[in-house]
Amino acid sequence: MSKKGVTILELLISITLTSIIVLLLIEVIISLNKVNNNENYASDDEIKRTEIIKNIESDFFKLKLNGLTINDNKILFIFEDNSTKELTINTNSLIYDNEKYVLETKNATYSTCFKYNYQDLDNNYYLITLDIPVIIKNKKDFKGDDISLTYLGLKKENTNYQLNYTC
């Protein structure tokens, strides 16, 4: 067989194989690009989100939440022993009990337009839900990224909750 050049068949096979590799490479590059652009919520922020929720909910349990007031971007939690802790929501950080939590994800911000709801339930129970959205530019809104807090408590004489909040 002559080795002076490539036949059309060899050329076609090479082009086909190269195309398959290029396609695979594009897929890998797209996936890597997603990580780079932080389209998926960065794992650092997932850990931080869990830490924020755990710290606040632990206080709800330990100190027993008994009231809540909202003033612009500041939420004041009032506990059974009349102690208070403040949560401040800024676009780039959350500050709870003097501890600051900054988002690491590129183009991610906390929304100061959070949702708060108080609901009376039967047997003197009440339910509060507080949802602070995390907005990531160019990413579809996903509830799993939000800082969602909840508390189910038993009503007492001095229970003092703001009933609703609209931003």
């Binding site: 590799i21 695979l24 919520y41 929720i53 800082i147």
Partner: peptide, 30 residues
Amino acid sequence: FVSVSLLLLYGTFTNMFNNSEKNIIFDNAS
């Protein structure tokens, strides 16, 4: 050889993405 390497690399990344997604949808703190 290159294709197999790329496929392995892609498989590893897909696994990583799936695991990170599961962190959000399985036993999420809230």
